[in-house]
Amino acid sequence: MPEDRPAEKSGERTGEPKPRRRQARGERRIAQLLQAAADVFCAYGYTATSTNAIAREASVSPGTLYQYFPNKEAIALELGDRLLAQMREAHGQAFTPENLALPLPELLDAVLDPLIEFNCQNPAFLALMHGSEIPGRIAEEHDALHASLLARVGDLLGHYLPDGDPAQHARIADMTFAIVKAGLALILAAPEGPERDAVITETKTVLLRYLDPVIGRALTTIPSP
């Protein structure tokens, strides 16, 4: 795949991004380029992707792409910011007091369904956030989001198991995230339709069987947060 445009030719990587056209046409072009970048990142990963490949996917010339983004990193940062904002919104829909008052099977549906839907609609999220050599700011923001979610799961466990060991809560939260991450990879790899639905069901079943002995009974006896 062609190499990205060398930064030293114009000092692109050291300077500020060029001003963007904020007119409606410019915003449509930016959205087109970001969607193309998402598709190419999914297909080849961040490291192997070039601006030329993104331009080809968007059916525009490299010169047109450079009118909006100075380099691949700027594209990844813009795409990452938008995906992280959408992911935070999905988390907000999942961790609500109403959901946390549900029995465990319904709680898993309420928490996981928005996250699964987001990842199925945005497969570039996992490709970009977990790829090698991704821009540092994206990695930092993703790590912060991950830490905040772990803290929320830990707080949830602490609420239902007030006499439990905080270290145990942290281990359970880590294991829960590992199960979800592995399940998401299998879900995204499965064809849409009955096969993907079956993988989603299996992922929830694994979580239910893991968590039910820990907090399933507590969910029926402790007031909701």
Rank of each mutant, 00 (worst) to 15 (best):
L104S: 05
F118M: 06
V153W: 01
L157H: 01
H159V: 05
N122M: 09
L128T: 00
F95L: 15
F118L: 06
P114Y: 02
E98H: 12
P166T: 10
E117P: 04
D163R: 12
A144R: 08
A170C: 12
E140C: 06
P162H: 00
N119I: 09
G154W: 03
I138P: 00
D109A: 10
D143S: 08
H159G: 03
M129P: 00
H142M: 12
G154T: 08
G164K: 01
A110S: 08
P103N: 11
P97T: 08
A144C: 02
A101K: 08
N122A: 13
A101Y: 01
S148P: 02
A170L: 14
L112V: 07
M129E: 05
D143G: 09
P103Y: 11
S132L: 15
A124Q: 06
L161S: 03
L107V: 03
S148V: 09
L115Y: 09
L149W: 04
I116P: 00
P114H: 01
L149C: 07
E98T: 12
D113N: 09
L150Q: 11
E133C: 13
A110K: 02
N99L: 07
L149F: 09
L149T: 03
P123Y: 10
N99G: 11
I138Y: 00
E106K: 11
L107M: 12
R152I: 11
L102W: 02
L107E: 04
E117F: 10
A170Q: 15
L161Q: 07
A147D: 10
L150C: 11
I116E: 00
L107H: 01
A110V: 09
D165L: 12
D113G: 04
F125E: 00
D113C: 08
P135Y: 07
D165E: 15
M129S: 08
S148M: 10
L128D: 00
E140P: 00
N122S: 14
S148A: 14
L112I: 05
H146L: 14
L128C: 08
A147F: 06
P97H: 12
E141Y: 01
E133I: 10
A170P: 04
R171W: 15
I138W: 00
E141M: 07
P97E: 10
P135S: 14
L128R: 01
G136C: 06
H146A: 14
L145W: 08
L150E: 09
Q168G: 14
L149H: 04
L161R: 05
L104I: 03
R137K: 11
S132F: 13
F125S: 01
L100H: 04
R152L: 12
M129L: 14
F118V: 04
V153H: 01
H142R: 11
H159R: 06
L108T: 05
H130N: 13
L108Y: 03
R137H: 11
I172P: 00
H130D: 14
L145N: 05
